[in-house]
Nucleic acid binder design. Structure first.
Lengths: 190, 190
DNA sequence: TTAATAAGTCTAGCAGCGCTAGATTGTCAC
DNA sequence: GTGACAATCTAGCGCTGCTAGACTTATTAA
């Protein structure tokens, strides 16, 4: 009975269209512009249909966030130049992380700032987020005994840099200098 | 003519009551619970009165944020133990910053996360925020050549730790360990 | 003292939001 | 064809930020 399969396929496609529309609208006009009404209009269905796919608006944000996690890990891994020293690798990852945050601010916001209904540091943490964490850990490990704690701290630093710069609290022009400073601090042998 | 002065005094008092109500409501039920209607009810005036004090809701958030900046600087300065070494001083400030963020999450959110209409790193940066920045710079300076960049990075790290922990992205139980790790990194002589 | 003006405040309402109950339409097995 | 079920829509609730225009009170001028 291929009919049900077709229906499921169509449903999955529609769900993807919702997520795509949310992401597009968010990047274009910010997350406040992403309303259920507008998404419904975008996919050419009535409003209640969206609630057959997602429990509420937050769940839509969460779905976009999940997409983001799927992209960030590979971006970080690919950012390390061939033959880079451990310190250079760390700098590459740091800069790639920040570039990701600023090239896709709405995506980044969904992943790390907005309520998205996603759970972390628990057993149900998405695999893609684990991968992202591991990508960061890989460049921290060579310099730190307790790699998990050090990675959490490294990640926090990057997130803080992204957020403070995004809100205009620190000067965007000095991004590279700050990263260099941080890598200098972390990567020098004690 | 003391009448106008009395009126100005009353207006200032009412403004303070609005800010106080906003802060109280935010700490109790989160910022989404802080609606103009509820604030109006709280100060026992009708809704439009609030718009004689603040341009819009964001401006109210901004006023609360400004209060927060007035408190954070002194908190950081007071946190350094007597006779603390430079490294210990840095750790004191870091822990005090995080405790501030977690004891007054709504206040912290107003200061650093929510749109508040405040401008930073510009000529019109509030004096209290400058003071806060200087309090952080004071403990970073002993270890870094370029104190401004280093302080921005230090601040970003603290902010990132606060935010990731607040959102459950990193384990709250390891807060102290992360801070110790960071101070170890920054405070060792190169 | 009274009339005109100004300041202060309120009522009522707009357009938009997230979300949902209940009606309606379309699709299928029999 | 018909009844059952799923898919979808219309219409609406209670909330939001914000504001126009009415009204009431205070201040000034004649």
């Amino acid at each position: 009975m291929g009919i049900n399969e077709r229906k499921e396929r169509e449903k999955a496609e529609r769900e993807q269209r919702i997520i795509g529309a949310a992401r597009m609208l968010a990047e274009k006009d910010g997350w406040t512009a992403v309303t259920v009404r507008r998404l419904a209009q975008e996919i050419e269905y009535s409003q209640p249909v969206l609630y057959a796919h997602f429990e509420n608006r937050d769940a839509i944000v969460g779905a976009v966030a999940l997409e983001g996690f799927g992209e960030l890990g590979p971006v970080l891994r690919a950012s390390v130049r061939r033959g880079a020293s451990p310190a250079e690798a760390m700098e590459d990852v740091a800069m790639a992380y920040l570039e990701f945050a600023f090239k896709r601010p709405a995506l980044y916001e969904a992943m790390f700032v907005l309520p998205s209904g996603l759970r972390f540091a628990k057993s149900d943490t998405p695999q893609s987020l684990r991968d992202t964490f591991r990508a960061m850990m890989a460049v921290v490990e060579p310099f730190c005994a307790n790699a998990e704690v050090a990675t959490e701290a490294f990640w926090a630093t990057l997130h803080g840099l992204a957020e403070l710069e995004r809100h205009g609290r620190i000067r965007a022009a000095l991004r590279k200098e700050r990263v260099t400073h941080i890598v200098d601090m972390l990567a020098r042998r004690s």
